[in-house]
Design a protein around this nucleic acid. Structure first.
Length: 575
RNA sequence: CGGGGCGUAGCGCAGCUUGGUAGCGCGCAGCGUUCGGGACGCUGAGGUCGCAGGUUCAAAUCCUGUCGCCCCGACCA
């Protein structure tokens, strides 16, 4: 490609809105251009990189036996209604209506479509297992797009859906896991595979592929000694027993003139924080229930775990007024003991969820559902019970994993994920079945697997750049080598042209900076900014020497080589 | 959706307080001198001042509304 013909320009001035390296570099170097917030034009240079990325992903998907197809962008809304996702995911579903008034969702993920497609074929066990995937633009009505390509409202995603029996699924999941590891390695980024929460996608477990980065939005923990890695939302950790050897003491109600915080309780009673019971009252707008979360005082409530345990999905903190009026309690003094479980509003329920940590301490203390009244020596089972006991505790840096190692907190960019969906969709959607060996109809067991191509592109740039620009890994560099032609002597142009032809003929992708009247400094700066792995300079000097000056993007000095040596060097490092 | 900031040429900004012919730098086009790490001179093109109302003889400037963008938070592939 000749630079004079390439659409898109580099820019010397930096936009003031670009806070993130990948955003700034991709824009300045002419790979992308913003349309409106969270929507981008992918320019020719960006397209070359993107198609190299999709080539890599496609290669590994196909090698894993997955088959590419493409689904419509507009999904009949009735499919989303079939799985109740018009409500559970409505906060980010984009909808459109055609002229007849038929409603559609702009596809943000395509589980329903995949099932709908499969059920149009009358499949049997002989057809299983299989995995179908597509590359397509996805739409998410994000509240707030940010960070260039990191969080957008429209983006290209590779999404795959596997169908099979429960036994077959294990292999499908592992296969995608392995493929993803290989894909990200080939794309030049190092990822951690972390257990995560399924959220509105459904299913019971999933894993995120996260590249560690300061600008990422995923928080996760790893135990480097055992390799345990999990998203903050689902991290489990070791909870030490505290005083289980103590005798149970008689519960005692006392006056306690204190403030409403946990620390006020500690100071007033001169007892450890862990022995206090923390009571946090939530309200779930979706199911109209109050949810009282109780936990050992030295832990925080993990709202994702709490939602899992309670079945809530629109959790918010209860207001002081609700605590007083609906639950006859007092902020700062809530207690599971004699907790009023019938809310005053009809149709509203109250659920108490206890964290498992409450079984690691005895003779605990806390409020008594009235101002300045506390209880001492509270014990689970004897003094109160919960509707459900579960792990609802939030991990903190320094806690120990179940394997015993210290948990380290990390931030990262989630570039891909794999979900076990199980029977989630086949239960919710009719005819999501196959015929088994005995002629009986059975539900199929599913998984889905996504890679955000644009976000991965941004992640690669985050991982591969310096103060001058992008430093592409060879596997996805838009071009392998850039020819910087300096000056406009006929001999120089002839030599540069000859090199361009020769390299191109050899199947090497070349960007030829054939601009005349552009000074060397600008050409070098552009070559660095765009990030091409090799640069060959053709100038009056090199022509006089009968050689070419070649250097790798990261080298500071070039070397003079003859034509054949250049060819050899580049061919040896072609992707 | 809450808090804060901002919309003036492709990009970065000044002008607004105190209404009176719309400016600067970069970039872009032409000519010339230059030419190995973002040169210099001259000339030129490019703007319904986000949009819609209002006040006024007169609005980029004042008032109202609205849309968009950025940051923090809430939310979340």
């Amino acid at each position: 490609m000749k630079m004079t013909q390439l659409f898109g320009k580099t820019s010397k001035t930096e936009g003031s809105d670009y806070k993130i390296s990948s955003h700034r570099l991709l824009t300045q170097a002419g790979y992308i251009r913003e349309s409106t917030a969270g929507r981008y034009y992918m320019l020719p240079l960006g397209m070359v990189v993107q198609s190299k990325m999709t080539d890599v992903i496609r290669k590994h998907m196909n090698a894993a036996g997955a088959q590419e197809l493409i689904m419509p962008t507009l999904h009949p809304l009735e499919l989303w209604q079939e799985t109740n996702r018009t409500t559970s995911a409505s906060f980010e579903l984009m909808k459109v209506v055609d002229r007849r008034g038929a409603p559609f969702a702009l596809g943000g993920t395509a589980e329903e479509m995949a099932v709908d497609l499969v059920r149009k074929f009358n499949i049997s066990y002989k057809d299983l297992p299989f995995n179908i995937y597509q590359f397509s633009n996805k739409f998410r009505d994000e509240m707030r797009a940010r960070g260039g390509l990191l969080r957008v409202r429209e983006f290209m995603m590779k999404d795959a859906y596997s169908f099979g029996t429960e036994e077959q699924f294990k292999q499908a999941y592992q296969q995608m896991w392995d493929s993803y590891v290989a894909i990200f390695e080939e794309l030049g980024i190092k990822v951690d595979v972390v257990a995560a929460d399924n959220g509105y996608i459904g299913g019971e477990y999933c894993h995120e592929f996260v590249m560690e980065s300061e600008v990422g939005e995923s928080r996760y923990f790893i135990d480097p000694t055992s390799g345990y890695a999990a998203h903050e939302d689902v991290t489990i950790f070791k909870v030490e027993d505290m005083n289980l050897d103590e005798e149970l003491q008689a519960m005692q109600a006392i006056d306690a003139e204190r403030g409403p915080t946990m620390n006020d309780g500690v100071l007033h009673h001169n007892l450890p924080l862990w022995q206090q019971i923390k009571d946090v009252l939530y309200f779930d707008e979706a199911t109209k229930r109050y949810i009282l979360a109780i936990i050992r005082g030295d832990f925080e409530v993990n709202e994702t775990k709490l939602m899992q345990a309670s079945g809530a999905w629109e959790l918010r903190a209860a207001t002081e007024q609700e605590i007083r009026e609906d639950l006859k309690s007092e902020p700062g003094f809530i207690s599971p003991v004699n907790f009023v479980k019938k809310g005053v509003k009809t149709g509203y329920e109250v659920v108490v969820i206890a964290d498992k940590s409450l079984r690691t301490a005895r003779n605990m203390y806390g409020g008594a559902n009235a101002r300045n009244k506390d209880l001492l020596n509270i014990n689970i089972d004897r003094d109160f019970t919960a509707d459900k006991e579960a792990d609802i505790a939030l991990a903190q840096p320094g806690f120990l994993s179940l394997d015993g190692g210290e948990l380290i907190e990390k931030k990262g960019i989630e570039v891909g994920n794999i979900f076990q969906l199980g029977y989630h969709y086949s239960n919710l959607m009719h005819d999501a079945e196959y015929t088994d060996e005995n002629g009986m109809r059975q539900k199929y067991y599913m998984g889905c697997y996504g890679i955000g191509v644009g976000r991965t592109l941004a992640a690669i740039v985050e991982a591969h750049h310096d103060d001058k620009g992008i430093v592409w890994p060879a596997s996805i560099a838009p071009y392998t080598i850039i020819i910087s032609q300096l000056g406009d002597d006929e001999a120089v142009i002839k030599a540069a042209h000859g090199m361009y032809k020769k390299l191109t003929t050899a199947g090497i992708q070349v960007l030829y900076d054939d601009r005349v009247g552009v000074r060397p400094g600008e050409k070098f700066a552009d070559a660095d900014l765009i990030g091409i792995p090799y640069r060959v300079v053709v100038s009056a000097k090199t022509v006089a020497a009968g050689k070419y000056e070649v250097k790798a993007r990261t080298d500071s000095q070039g070397q003079l080589l003859d034509e054949n040596a250049v060819m050899q060097l580049v061919l040896g490092n072609k992707n």
